[in-house]
């Protein structure tokens, strides 16, 4: 096994961007793609088992496929492997983090999640940005840094892997809301208030998923949300904006040209909160808009709610 090789799962925009980062660090990249295709700077394979040659595997696949891919991949992995993902997804009705899915479906224990104000184009082009790697294993953080950190990409670390995953998922959801707001021309004070209250909502939910609320205010949470507000071209924002302007969900998803995890998380999060008796008015509003309610009506309903203590 070559210590220089890293494996990447997925040939979408994030998979290709991570390959570019690893190349920049002089690493050999083995990229798994479902269909054969050319990816610059990477050897592409369609055999998942080939990925076991690398000690570090970065997964950049939509959460909907994670179960199937990890089950298959797990057959050729053992205790030495490290599995880090960049998904914004939480799976099942219990909103299970992907790192936990990896532990359930593969023998891998050294798992991690990479998140933060990461933009696939910026990563590929080498525009300065930063990220956070969450893992309880210091060697996972070190290996991830070795693979992708450079003078244009700063990688911080935390042991709160679930916190990183929850923060990333919640910001994905709030980026949709930002798109809605943008689509109907809400900005400034109103926008700031809703996004701040959205973070308070995330803070209520996070402990129930095993996350430390402090992590929400790090790069994976607040840091990522600042990037959305700062005008990073996020697919979630594009989709939200298109929906707000009256496009059908199908057309809006096409405009975003990426898999939007927030669409499926919103409904499961609302149900989860109901079961745990948690108030999530902003997520509920996001869900109503996904289901077809006009963002302006959703907004006025939110404004009509009695305000409580902060």
């Amino acid at each position: 096994m070559s210590k220089e090789t890293i494996a990447i799962l997925g040939s979408g925009s994030f998979g290709r961007a991570l390959a570019a980062c690893a190349n920049r660090n002089g690493r050999e990249v083995l990229l798994w793609s479902r269909k054969p295709k050319e990816v610059e700077g990477a050897t592409v394979t369609t055999e998942l088992s080939d990925c076991s040659q690398a000690e570090l595997i970065l997964a950049a696949v939509p959460s909907g496929y994670v179960g199937e891919i990890f089950s298959q991949l797990g057959k050729s992995l053992d205790g030495r492997h490290m599995l880090v993902h960049v998904s914004r997804g939480l799976v099942s009705d219990e909103l299970t983090p992907i790192s936990r899915v990896a532990r359930e479906l593969t023998p891998v224990r050294k798992t991690g999640a990479l998140a933060g104000p990461l933009d696939a184009d910026a990563l590929r082009e080498g525009t300065p940005c930063g990220a956070v790697i969450g893992s309880r294993f210091p060697e996972v953080c070190a290996a991830t840094r070795d693979a992708i950190e450079s003078d244009v990409l700063r990688v911080y670390d935390t042991t709160d892997v679930v916190g990183v995953e929850v923060a990333s998922a919640m910001v994905g959801l709030f980026a949709l809301a930002y798109g809605f707001a943008k689509g109907v021309g809400v900005e400034g004070a109103a926008l700031s208030m809703f996004l701040t209250r959205a973070m308070a909502e995330a803070e209520r939910v996070a402990p129930h998923l095993g996350a430390d609320t402090k992590t929400l205010y790090g790069l994976a949470g607040m840091g990522d949300l600042f990037a959305v507000l700062g005008g990073d071209e996020r697919p979630e924002v594009l989709l939200g904006e298109a929906l707000a302007k009256g496009s059908s969900l199908k057309d809006a998803a096409r405009a975003a040209a990426a898999h939007i995890e927030g669409l499926s998380i919103a409904r499961r999060l609302v149900n989860f909160a109901q079961r745990r008796r948690l108030e999530v008015p902003i997520t509920s509003s996001i869900l109503s808009v996904i289901d077809g309610l006009s963002p302006s009506i959703a907004l006025s309903r939110l404004m009509a709610r009695p305000a409580g203590s902060e």
Partner: peptide, 8 residues
């Protein structure tokens, strides 16, 4: 392992 195989 979860797939039923064995590892060291």
């Amino acid at each position: 392992t979860p797939s039923g195989g064995t590892i060291d």
